[in-house]
Amino acid sequence: MGSKMRGKNLFKEDFDISGNQKYFSKVKYRTKEEIVREGSLKHYTVISAPKNFSFLKNPEETIIFINSLEKCYLNKEQVYVDIEKIDFLDYSAVTVLVSVMFSFKARNIKFNGNLPKNLELAKMLIDSEFFKFLGKTQTERMEYTIGKENQIFTRANKEVNSELGLIVMQEATMTIWNQKRTCKGLQRTLLELMQNTNNHASVNQKGEKHWWLSVNHDKKNRKVSFIFVDYGVGIFESLKNKPEDNKWFGWFEKLKDKLLIGGNNEILKMLLEGEMHMSVTGKHFRGKGLPGINQVLEREQISNLSIISNNVTADVKNNKYLKLKNQFSGTFVAWELNESNVNSKWIA
């Protein structure tokens, strides 16, 4: 996906931008071609993002881009991330890109890149604090910042932060209802996803057992959007590698008679609806994991749940489960909280 080139200027060195719009508009933009002509990209492999850079709206092309980065990571190749010509960007792409580039950072593999020519998209990337992650060490954590409307942050290892859901809920409900409200479904969703990161992680795999959460407030439309990324092995790869003492061991043999086609899209639907748990274990699920999150959606405690894992994309609300041509090595979950969702009086 690109020629081999070499570079000495990292993102933050090429574009030392404060995020201030007045200052930003005066920055002299250097194109990839200009940097190439300077001879500063030797020994870097250039990987270009799709013009529609969105994990939600354009999963196939975005997964190809992510997989190209992953291939460089596994081969310990230095990369130049070219997002100069994108004409659409959202937090789904930014969050996944952060998780991938952090893997390069954790393994001390150098990387480089540019900003979108579109100033609004460039400012969005800067405001997401993407560049702060590039300056962090592997052991440092990006904590949740109270009062910041749009942010990405992470926790590592086997840490399930039960207090996080409370803080996030307080701020989200203030955006939506102008007062603190209790949204148990939001808290439950966050806890289940954090726990699932531990269940799906493999030692020394890409995400190094990090989970990533993006929280984005839309005060105009009174909604808050969430994106959770577990950049590890994904749901189905995790299921394939269960040990004999695990309740999911041999799951496919126990399930195959109930499958019409046997694709992962069909399996994900059965998993979310709790049917897979009953078929494999002989017991009803206890409201845990992805079936528990689907239950939260059915109770209208959250809205617009979407899941991408391995070779499946699911628009759960609209009952659309589709196979992808390309495979994402991780689990991506997006959902919203808005005025239509069930809530109750805040109890301090």
Rank of each mutant, 00 (worst) to 15 (best):
N161C: 06
N161W: 09
N161L: 08
N161M: 01
S162N: 14
S162T: 15
S162G: 10
E163P: 03
L164A: 04
L164P: 06
G165I: 02
L166I: 10
I167K: 15
Q170G: 01
A172W: 09
T173Y: 06
M174R: 12
T175V: 14
T175W: 09
T175L: 03
T175E: 14
I176F: 15
I176G: 14
I176V: 09
I176Y: 15
I176C: 09
W177D: 00
W177F: 14
Q179P: 00
Q179Y: 11
K180L: 05
K180V: 03
K180N: 11
R181T: 10
R181F: 11
R181S: 12
R181N: 13
R181I: 08
R181P: 05
T182H: 09
T182S: 11
C183Q: 07
C183G: 04
C183F: 02
K184V: 02
G185N: 04
G185S: 06
G185E: 03
Q187P: 05
Q187S: 14
Q187F: 08
Q187I: 05
R188N: 12
R188T: 10
T189G: 10
L191V: 11
L191W: 11
E192H: 04
E192Y: 10
E192N: 08
E192A: 03
E192L: 03
E192K: 03
L193T: 04
L193C: 03
M194R: 09
N196E: 01
N198I: 13
N199T: 14
N199M: 07
N199P: 06
A201H: 07
A201C: 11
A201N: 09
S202Y: 08
V203C: 06
V203P: 06
V203T: 05
N204S: 13
N204V: 07
N204A: 13
N204K: 12
Q205E: 13
K206F: 12
K206P: 01
K206E: 04
G207R: 04
G207E: 11
E208V: 03
K209D: 01
K209P: 00
K209Q: 01
K209R: 05
H210L: 14
H210Q: 11
W211P: 01
W211A: 02
W212R: 07
V215I: 02
K219F: 13
